[in-house]
Simulated assay, not measured.
Amino acid sequence: MVDPDATAETKALYANLWAIQQRGFMFGHHDDLNYGRHWQGVKGKSDTKDVCGDYPAVYSLDFASMMDDRFNPQSDWVAQSKQNILAARRRGEVITACCHLNNPLTGGDSWDNSSRAVVAGILKNGSNTQAKFNTWLDRLISFVKDLKDDNGHPIPIIFRPFHEHTQTWNWWGRGCATESEFVNLWRYTVAYLMRGGVHQFIYIISPQSGGADGEDRFTYWWPGDDYVDMIGYDFYEQENPIDFYISLKSLSAVSAKKQKPCAVTETGLEAFSNPRYWTDQILQPATASGVHISFITFWRNKYVGKNEKDTHFFSVFPGHPSEQDFKAFYCDKRTYFSRDLPDMYSPVTGIIVE
Rank of each mutant, 00 (worst) to 15 (best):
L13T: 09
W18R: 11
W18M: 13
L33G: 00
Y35T: 02
G36E: 05
S46P: 07
S46A: 07
V51I: 13
Y59H: 13
L61N: 11
M66R: 04
D68E: 10
A79I: 12
A88Y: 04
R91V: 03
I95M: 05
H100S: 10
G107L: 11
N128S: 14
W136T: 07
L140V: 08
S142R: 14
N151F: 04
N151W: 02
N151A: 07
F159M: 11
F159H: 12
R160S: 05
E164F: 06
H165N: 12
R174S: 07
C176Q: 04
E181F: 02
W186I: 01
T189S: 12
A191V: 10
L193Y: 02
Q200I: 06
P207Q: 12
P207I: 01
A212I: 02
W222F: 08
E237Y: 13
F244A: 11
Y245T: 02
S252F: 07
A263E: 10
V264I: 14
T265Q: 04
E266I: 03
G268D: 02
A271T: 06
S273H: 09
R276A: 07
P285S: 08
A286H: 05
T287D: 02
H292R: 11
F295V: 05
I296A: 01
K302Y: 14
D310T: 09
S315A: 14
H320A: 15
H320Q: 11
D325Q: 03
D325Y: 02
K327Y: 01
A328Y: 01
C331A: 15
T335W: 00
F337K: 00
D340C: 14
M344T: 12
Y345Q: 03
Y345P: 00
